[in-house]
C-alpha cells in the first residue's frame, strides 16, 4: 500500500463503509421479512399455541452462518468468473445473481420443511406466501450480497489486503450476519411480533407465541414486517455494520504506519472507549427517563 496515494485509499475506505451500510440495512430487512434468526422461534411456536399465521418462516440457519455462505459463495463465484478473464464488475454481478438464486432455493425449502412439520397443529402451507415473500427476500439479499462482495473486492484489490476474495467473504459474511442479527432482531422480535404487548417493557414469558397475526387491513404477512423494520432496525443494522467496516479499515489505513503499528492500536482503543462512554451515557439516560418498573426494594421480594 506504499505506492498508492493516501487520498485514493481514504476514498476506497469511505466507499467500503458506504457499501457495508447498504449491506447491513438490506441484510436486516431480508432476515426480518423471512423471520430468520432468533424471532423465528416465535413464528415456529405460534401454531403450537393455537395461533395459525401467515408469516414467512425461513429457518435456513442462524443469520451469521447463512450470511457466511451467501457472501463467501458470491465472492467465490466472482473469483471464478474473474479467473475466466471476465470483467470484475460483470463477474461480481453474475456471482451475486447466482448466489441469490441459491438463497431463494434455500428459502423455499426452509419454509416448506418447517411448515410441513407443523401439520399436527394445523398450520397450512401458503403458496402465495412462498411466491411473494421469497422474491422480496431475494431482492434484498441481492442488494446485501452485491454490496458486501464489492466491498471485499475493493479491500482486496484496491487496498491490498492479503486474504483472497472468498476468505474475505467468509470473514465479512459472518460479521455481517452477527452485526445484523444482534442489532435488528430485538426490534422485530419484540416490537413488531408483540406489538400488542405493553410498550417499553419486555414480552412476558407467559405471552410467548401470541404473535400479532392481523394487519391494519386483513391478515398480516411478512411484507408488513418488512415495512416496519425498514424504519429503524434496518438502518441501525446498516450503520452498525458500516461503522465496523469503516473504522476497522480507517484505523489501519491512516494509523498503521505510525509507531510501527502501535498507532492503529491506540486509535482502536480510543474508539472502544468512546463507544463505551456513549453506551454508558444512554444507559444512564434510559434509567433516569424511563424510570424503574417497580419501587426500588432493598431485598429481593419479587
Amino acid at each position: 500500500m506504499a505506492d498508492i496515494p493516501l487520498v485514493f485509499e481514504i476514498g476506497i475506505t469511505a466507499m467500503a463503509g458506504a457499501l457495508a451500510t447498504i449491506a447491513g440495512a438490506a441484510e436486516d430487512v431480508e432476515s426480518d421479512i423471512g423471520s430468520q434468526g432468533d424471532p423465528n422461534s416465535q413464528v415456529q411456536l405460534a401454531p403450537q399455541m393455537g395461533y395459525i399465521h401467515r408469516i414467512f418462516n425461513k429457518a435456513i440457519a442462524g443469520e451469521p452462518p447463512a450470511w457466511g455462505l451467501w457472501i463467501t459463495l458470491g465472492a467465490g463465484l466472482a473469483w471464478a468468473f474473474m479467473a475466466m478473464s471476465m470483467n470484475p464488475i460483470l463477474a461480481i454481478i453474475l456471482g451475486c445473481g447466482i448466489t441469490t438464486f441459491v438463497q431463494g432455493v434455500y428459502s423455499t425449502t426452509a419454509y416448506l420443511g418447517r411448515t410441513a412439520s407443523l401439520a399436527k397443529f394445523g398450520q397450512p402451507v401458503y403458496i402465495d406466501i412462498l411466491k411473494s415473500m421469497t422474491t422480496v427476500t431475494m431482492a434484498h439479499a441481492f442488494v446485501a450480497i452485491f454490496a458486501t462482495v464489492s466491498m471485499c473486492f475493493l479491500i482486496n484489490t484496491a487496498l491490498g489486503h492479503p486474504f483472497p476474495l472468498p476468505l474475505l467473504g467468509l470473514v465479512w459474511g459472518i460479521a455481517l450476519g452477527a452485526a445484523g442479527s444482534a442489532t435488528g432482531n430485538p426490534y422485530y422480535g419484540k416490537e413488531r411480533q408483540y406489538q400488542t404487548q405493553k410498550f417499553g417493557a419486555g414480552v412476558p414469558i407467559a405471552a410467548s407465541g401470541n404473535i400479532v397475526r392481523y394487519a391494519e387491513a386483513g391478515e398480516r404477512n411478512s411484507l408488513d414486517n418488512g415495512f416496519f423494520t425498514a424504519k429503524l432496525a434496518g438502518p441501525a443494522s446498516g450503520v452498525c455494520f458500516g461503522l465496523i467496516v469503516f473504522l476497522e479499515i480507517w484505523r489501519t489505513i491512516l494509523f498503521e504506519p505510525i509507531g510501527a503499528g502501535w498507532g492503529a492500536i491506540v486509535v482502536g482503543v480510543i474508539m472502544i472507549i468512546i463507544f463505551a462512554a456513549i453506551d454508558r451515557y444512554i444507559e444512564v439516560w434510559a434509567r433516569k427517563n424511563y424510570g424503574p418498573y417497580t419501587a426500588p426494594v432493598a431485598e429481593a421480594s419479587s
Binding site: 426490534y187 416490537e191 417499553g200 429503524l232 432496525a233 441501525a236 473504522l247 472502544i272 444512554i282 444507559e283
Partner: peptide, 24 residues
C-alpha cells in the same frame, strides 16, 4: 483491538435499539 472494536459497536447498537427503538 479489531475484535473489541467490532463488539463495542455491536453492543452499543444493541442498547441503542433497546432504548430508543423499544423504550426499554
Amino acid at each position: 483491538v479489531g475484535g473489541g472494536l467490532m463488539m463495542a459497536i455491536t453492543c452499543f447498537f444493541v442498547n441503542f435499539i433497546y432504548i430508543f427503538g423499544m423504550g426499554i
